[in-house]
């Protein structure tokens, strides 16, 4: 059993799958990082991902263009982000429950629309892998890193980009200030509400993309519960990665590695019940949260609505 997993081609296969599966975790978690850095805990990522996965799939199916699917998923993400921002920023509702509301809304709506418009399992033309010249010829490393579709490269590039935005720009400074001491930021003339709206919407657009990756860049089809809790795991990754893009990258790779491993265990038909293999990322999430608990810094105003009148 072990020797099956240890052959070179299997290891390369697992690592390449892991790199590919980092994409939805990374996109969703980096987006959620902006929301949380600004003080909004958006637990609805899973619902946005489901709607992004369905919307991207449906538009690609109807128009035959996966790129239009991407646009649709981003648009859906923006709208759902606007809704979440309205509830949590303007109406100051309890954020944990608001996220669950957004999740249930996305879950129900995606399922309803899928049955109404398509109703059966059908595949679409998704994004094809783009082998990067020269680099993809490197043995082992080439296959693992440089033979993926554009969304994988895009997600990996987002790590340094979001890092620069968050830590090297004035706007990033505002975001961090709003998430720690909104009162002080407000006194300095920063519009807390505007920063939070922007961050929640950015996060939600990225969650929509993460969902679209699953249908357009991974399975090329839509099925119920296609996101399988990845949106929730992405929220956990933000804690695990300590609200830092590089930390999130590490966590995302760890999780996608486990995800890839369980997929390959199924592919190789190893003697482990598939339910237990599928279970590992969820158990790992709980362990990871328990492990980092208490020893982490978090945005001080996370989850706390800001009321200018001081009520």
């Amino acid at each position: 059993m072990i020797h099956q997993l240890l052959s070179l081609s299997t290891i390369v296969g697992i690592l390449a799958t892991a790199v590919r599966l980092t994409t939805p975790f990374l996109l969703a978690a980096l987006g959620e990082m902006f929301a949380q850095r600004s003080g909004i805990y958006n637990l609805g990522v899973e619902g946005v991902m489901m709607m992004g996965a369905f919307g991207g799939f449906w538009v690609a199916l109807v128009t035959g263009s996966a790129w239009l699917g991407i646009l649709a998923a981003m648009g859906i993400g923006a709208l759902m982000g606007l809704l979440m921002a309205f509830i949590s920023v303007t109406m100051q509702a309890e954020q944990g429950i608001s996220g669950i509301g957004l999740y249930m809304f996305g879950w129900g709506l995606a399922g309803f629309l899928f049955r109404l418009t398509v109703g059966y399992i059908t595949s679409i033309d998704g994004f094809k892998p783009i082998a990067i010249p020269l680099l993809s010829d490197i043995p082992v490393l080439g296959t693992v890193l440089f033979d993926h579709n554009w969304m994988v490269y895009f997600a990996l590039l987002m790590v340094p980009i979001t890092w620069v935005i968050l830590f090297k720009t004035t706007w990033g400074l505002k975001v961090r200030a709003v998430g720690v001491t909104p009162e002080a930021a407000d006194t300095l003339g920063v519009s807390v509400a505007r920063v939070r709206y922007t961050c929640v919407i950015i996060g939600s657009v990225m969650a929509g993309l993460a969902g679209a990756f699953l249908t357009l860049g991974h399975t090329n089809m839509y099925a119920d519960n296609i996101t399988a809790g990845r949106g929730f795991i992405a929220v956990a990754l933000v804690y695990f990665g300590r609200w830092n893009p590089w930390g999130i990258l590490g966590g995302a790779f760890l999780f996608s590695f486990v995800d890839a491993l369980q997929l390959w265990i199924q592919v190789l038909g190893l003697n482990i019940p598939y339910e237990f293999a599928v279970m590992t990322p969820y158990v790992l999430t709980i362990l990871a949260l328990a492990l980092v608990a208490g020893r982490i810094w978090e945005p001080a105003a996370l989850g706390r609505p800001f009321d200018r009148e001081g009520g």
Binding site: M91, A93, E94, S98, I100, L102, M104, F105, G106, G108
Partner: peptide
């Protein structure tokens, strides 16, 4: 899933209206 959509849709205005 009409039922589920309706349920999911109740929570959102309720949270917003809680204010």
């Amino acid at each position: 899933s009409v039922g589920v959509v309706l349920q999911g849709m109740i929570l959102i205005p309720m949270l917003a209206g809680g204010l």
